Simulated scan of single mutants.
Amino acid sequence: MKSSPNWKRKKGLRTWMNKDQIQAFEGRISRADRILIISHIRPDGDAVGSLIGLGLILEELGKEVNLVLEDGVPRVFHHLTGFEKVIREAVGIYDLVIVVDCSDIDRIGSVLDEYGEPDVNIDHHPTNTQFAQLNMVRDNAVATVEIIYDLVQALSLPVTLPIAEALLTGLLTDSLGFRTSNSSPRTLRIAAELQEMGANLQVLYRKAMLEKSLEAVKYWGQGLSRIQMENRLVWTSLNLEDRKAADYPGRDDADLINVLSRIRETDICLVLIEQTNGSVKVSWRAQPGFDVSKVATHFGGGGHKPAAGAEIRGDLARVQEEVLEETRKALSGTE
């Protein structure tokens, strides 16, 4: 299959990729027959969009591709063609292992425990630890799918409608609908090109960012009932009993953090989510002028200045106390 016949590539959109890295990536792809692509636990739209988009591209090139997410694809992305290809464990021997949208190798879970160092790392997080043989990391990209789109341009890779939909989903979700501070005219140009390939922005926006299950909204209610605020810092928590009461199937916060970030009186907000393995996942959001990636890095996590996350061993009460202490430093500028 080829790109939509209604789409013609624009010459004005410059690729921001390192030529040596592009050539190295092309060489690895050309030599590989069986390829593994993986992303992080509790995958978001950029993880899913990057995984499926790149996987479908490589299948178009005649490669055998395994797409692996340890936690599977969240139901909110089940409308994307290709989600059914995603499995939870790597199987067999691969010629090439690619990790997408992951700042730290530990965030992929146990998928690579028997495979060693990945071959390629494609990511946009400033806190990326450069853990692969070839690290294609560009932290000024609004999403990892933007880097994959650069590869599409640089190598004239095939783009079908399902590929365009996956890439646009990643762009929409990581930019929060083009609302993040790193959203740029270039971001909108890429979105426009993906629309010209046939991707329906309005439908994808509604599916990925507006529609919520009844279970997710009930889960929000649990967290909103104990919301707290102190000097423009807002936080709440979700425990295992909350998840059970709401019958929520995920291990995340159902995007509650993005609800808190809309509170007018807040500069930094965070949600703590108790996990079944004795740890607590923390998600931060911050207004321009604050850097929560430093707080996340302090706890072994990572991310961006306005959005970051970490998973911390310990009980919910203790982790909350420690996280609030460090976050207050970021709020006061004393970290």
Rank of each mutant, 00 (worst) to 15 (best):
M1H: 12
K8C: 03
R9E: 12
K10S: 13
K11H: 06
K11C: 03
G12T: 10
Q21L: 10
I22C: 13
Q23I: 14
S30I: 09
R31C: 03
I38P: 00
S39G: 09
I41G: 03
G45A: 07
E60G: 14
G62E: 11
V65K: 02
N66V: 12
E70W: 01
F77L: 14
F77D: 12
H79V: 12
G82F: 09
K85Q: 15
A90W: 04
V91G: 00
V100D: 01
D101P: 06
C102P: 01
G109Q: 03
S110P: 05
Y115K: 04
Y115T: 09
G116W: 10
N121W: 00
H124R: 01
P126A: 05
F131I: 06
L134A: 02
M136K: 09
N140C: 02
A143G: 05
T144V: 02
E146C: 05
L157Y: 08
L161N: 07
I163T: 11
A166D: 09
L168T: 01
L172K: 04
T173S: 01
D174K: 03
S175I: 02
R179V: 00
S184W: 10
N200D: 15
L201A: 14
L201R: 09
R206K: 14
K212V: 07
E215Q: 13
A216Y: 06
W220F: 13
Q228R: 15
R232H: 13
R232K: 12
K244P: 02
K244V: 13
A246C: 12
P249S: 05
D253H: 09
A254R: 03
I257E: 01
S261Y: 08
E265L: 14
I273Y: 08
K281M: 10
V282C: 07
R285I: 05
G289S: 06
T297P: 00
H298G: 06
G300K: 08
A307C: 01
G309T: 08
A317T: 13
R318Q: 09
R318T: 06
E321P: 03
E325D: 15
K329C: 08
